[in-house]
Design a protein around this nucleic acid. Structure first.
Lengths: 184, 184
DNA sequence: ATTTGCATGTAACTCGTTACATGATTTA
DNA sequence: TAAATCATGTAACGAGTTACATGCAAAT
């Protein structure tokens, strides 16, 4: 249900093959959405069967033929209907939060290790976001100025939320280490 | 794979039936994890088959018999191994962020409506978190002081991240409205 | 009289992951 | 000569959702 809109969305920007979309997901949209190649191919076939996207075939030698997809009018309508529909309730499935929920079971050293692990992962995400923001800034005279505006705001929000997470993780690490010393 | 640890986790706190767990998920842990009742019952049977939890039967009249589960030693070992294992990479699947990614397609009024919708949902989550924090504070002399400590930190982090999100959403709403006025 | 709570489950389905298969072309 | 890029797909599995079914007891 979500991949469907991710596909309609990226195809609304330009005509693409399944392979192109996979690359797009891995590079540009990675922190927003991702999917495996086999899932993308399957979903593209389904969407075409439903008449939400249409394809044209590029004959190739030495490689499999390539299918370039673009949304139909019905597809664009569905996309826009989804975009303006009331927001679904936030999911409430976060493996990391669940871990912390039970973290009292293990010794402080292990807990700190987990936190520092996460810290590094969040930093990595922030680095990717920063880089993306630069690319977008550079790309300012795009064919889709409105899309670009939202995408930059999105990355900024992403940065702000993850920076808040980082602050929190750091304070937790300090607290656990402090508590540790006290207990000695 | 995740529900498994959620179940081992809650059962490590006290012996519970599937029904109890469902209530726990709905009330206490809702913003961390959730699952449908049928999934919980299925997974409990699987985990028992795998020897990670054990049950005893409470005979009842007028209702179906009740099964109370608790983790086995093997189950607790698995739980602790998971708790201390390196953190999985953050998921990167966020429907709301994906929406915003394509939000440039629709008119500013619709976008503001979506943002205000989300704003209210985040506020609702924050109210639940606040309430939970009070319950926990009240519960301070628990049987599981370490668990409680982490759970309170968790809620605080949750609050901080969602407050950051709120700030961001508000600035977005302002920006869209402002841009709107300019365009007139 | 109706709803809510207790307490379990089955069946069908969708969504997503992992592993495997193919095969030419370009780059290191 | 090994790896990465291009380009598609199948098959099996695991995770999660939705709808349905049962039936008593207590509360509104």
């Amino acid at each position: 249900m979500s991949l469907k809109f991710a596909l309609l969305g990226v195809l609304s920007m330009r005509e693409m093959s399944g392979y192109d979309i996979k690359r797009q997901f891995d590079r540009a949209v990675h922190f927003v959405w991702n999917a495996s190649d086999s899932q993308i191919y399957r979903e593209l076939r389904d969407l075409e069967k439903q008449g939400l996207i249409a394809s044209r075939t590029i004959e190739q030698t030495g490689k499999p033929n390539k299918f370039l997809y673009r949304p139909t009018d019905a597809g664009l309508d569905e996309l826009d209907a989804w975009l303006t529909s009331p927001a679904e309730a936030p999911y409430g499935k976060d493996r990391f939060l669940m871990r912390l929920f039970f973290m009292g079971r293990v010794d402080p050293e292990s807990a700190v290790a987990v936190l520092e692990d996460r810290r590094e992962q969040v930093c990595a995400l922030l680095r990717v976001a920063e880089e993306r923001l630069l690319v977008f800034t550079d790309l300012s005279r795009s064919q889709h100025p409105d899309l670009l505006w939202w995408q930059m705001r999105l990355i900024e929000g992403f940065q702000q939320m993850h920076t808040a997470q980082l602050t929190w993780i750091d304070s937790l690490i300090q607290a656990v280490k402090g508590h540790d010393v006290e207990a000695d």
